[in-house]
Amino acid sequence: MAPHVFLLGFLAVTCYVASADPSPLQDFCVADLNSPISVNGYVCKNRNLVQVDDFFLSGVNVPGNTSNAIGSNVTHFFAANFPALNTLGVSMARIDYAPYGLNPPHYHPRASEILTVLEGTLEVGFVTSSTYNPPNQLISKVIRKGDAVVFPEALTHFQQNLGNSPAVALATFSSQNPDVNTIANTVFGSNPAIPSYILAKAFQVSESVIADIQSQFGNDLKLLNKGEDKDGSQV
């Protein structure tokens, strides 16, 4: 029994490690964003060219522009614009919310997130997976300045400002490039658009409802209904 238990434990640890960013094999690897070489991450800058300022970041205190339809702005600080994060498996973002602004349902395919409220009151939540028991459970709470919440990796989550004044939060991630998929943008704003008859069946509504939603994301839907391509051929 003991060897089997050891093997299962080893496999569990191996799977967990494999799912995270690669562990660094050196003190640091400041990203060379100009390198033409493509790797899983970024090529290291020549050590002789690394500067003190590569490890420091300014502008986290600068509010983002929340003058948009959802009333929020996310300023990412990933390896792509903070090169010292390369290979370290961490990153962060500043999130600004207008009064009653929303950071809409989204998920990060490569990272868990800890969100800390710096100013304001937020309603936050995430939804468990379809195979969780019970499935698709909403875990939600109102949090305030000084509170924090964790959003597990790849689970859909959201935040909304409940106050009539701006709110600010700081998000930290377990990946140098957590990426983000906003549900509405992914489903209704893909390029080219997902045919409305597919989404109508998935959401159990009429195609006209789907077409109206998709039009808010700028898609050309004239010939996408009923399985027709834009040139009129069947797809």
Rank of each mutant, 00 (worst) to 15 (best):
F78R: 06
N68E: 11
N65Q: 02
V124L: 02
H106M: 05
A79S: 15
V127G: 01
A84P: 02
A111K: 07
A80E: 12
N61C: 03
F82A: 09
F82Y: 14
R94L: 08
L118A: 06
L118K: 05
P104M: 13
R110D: 07
F78V: 14
V90N: 06
N81E: 12
P63L: 05
S72K: 03
S130F: 00
V74E: 13
S91W: 15
V124I: 12
L118P: 01
A98N: 04
I114D: 04
H76L: 15
F126V: 10
E119F: 05
L118C: 03
I114K: 04
P63D: 12
T116D: 05
N133E: 07
P109T: 10
S130Y: 00
P83H: 03
G125Y: 04
H106F: 09
L115R: 08
N68F: 10
A84Y: 15
L118N: 07
G71V: 15
I114C: 03
N61F: 06
F77Y: 15
G101T: 12
P104R: 08
R94F: 04
G89W: 05
G101A: 13
P104K: 08
P135L: 08
Y107F: 14
I114G: 01
S72W: 07
L102R: 00
I70A: 05
E123K: 11
S91E: 11
T87D: 11
A69F: 07
H76A: 12
H106P: 04
G120S: 14
Y97K: 01
P109I: 00
V127Y: 01
S72Y: 06
F82D: 00
T116P: 03
H106A: 06
I70C: 04
N86H: 08
G64K: 06
V62I: 15
T87N: 12
G120Q: 12
L118T: 06
F77R: 11
S72G: 05
H108V: 02
G71I: 15
Y107L: 12
Y100R: 08
P134K: 05
V90A: 11
P134C: 06
P104L: 14
V90K: 08
N103Y: 12
G120Y: 15
F77D: 10
S112N: 06
V74F: 05
L118E: 08
A69R: 13
D96P: 01
A98H: 02
G89Q: 12
H108M: 09
N61I: 03
P63M: 09
S72F: 14
T116L: 04
P135V: 13
N86D: 08
S130R: 03
P135H: 10
G101H: 15
P63Y: 15
V62M: 11
G120F: 15
H108Q: 08
A80S: 13
T116A: 07
E113P: 03
A98S: 11
P135K: 05
G101L: 14
N103A: 13
G125V: 06
G89C: 10
M92Q: 05
P134H: 09
T66Y: 11
A93C: 01
A93V: 00
P99K: 01
T131L: 10
T121G: 09
